[in-house]
């Protein structure tokens, strides 16, 4: 299990984050992002995941996060922008990570070793 701090995430570009996540998950690791991804990054991650699915090698990811907190400032609104930062996100290989329980406050995940 790899925890990636908010500090480190803030220094990375979207593509670097996605590459890091997929590389780790494809080798069977579970990644915990302290500050999560933006909605745009989430959708790019799903897209990249789809292009990298291979029979008997990689069947995709399991990902859990919460709706991004909207921090739209007045100026942001004027510019038609919503800066929103995701909350903690857990990502793992589809065949290993299963969400047992999730509510607004906590995520419980079960990791199955082997298959």
């Amino acid at each position: 299990m790899d925890l990636i701090s908010e500090e480190k995430l803030n220094r990375m570009t979207s593509m670097e984050k996605i590459r890091l996540i997929l590389d780790k998950v494809k080798t069977g690791r579970i990644v915990v992002l302290e500050s999560g991804l933006t909605p745009e990054e989430e959708v790019r991650l799903i897209e990249m995941t789809m292009t990298e699915i291979r029979v008997d090698e990689f069947s995709g990811i399991e990902i859990e996060s919460y709706p991004a907190k909207r921090e739209s400032s007045f100026v942001g609104r004027l510019l038609g922008r919503n800066s929103s930062k995701g909350r903690m996100t857990v990502i793992g290989p589809a065949n290993q990570l299963r969400t047992v329980e999730k509510d607004q406050y906590q995520i419980s995940t079960k990791v199955s070793v082997g298959d």
């Binding site: 933006t38 909605p39 745009e40 989430e42 959708v43 799903i46 990902i63 859990e64 996060s65 919460y66 709706p67 991004a68 909207r70 038609g80 919503n82 929103s84 995701g86 999730k102 509510d103």
Partner: peptide, 19 residues
């Protein structure tokens, strides 16, 4: 089914970001 899925959260987040 459980509504708290990533697919749902991602679609909603993207629509919100696009207003």
């Amino acid at each position: 089914e459980d509504p708290y899925t990533q697919v749902n959260v991602t679609v909603i987040g993207n629509m919100e970001a696009r207003n």
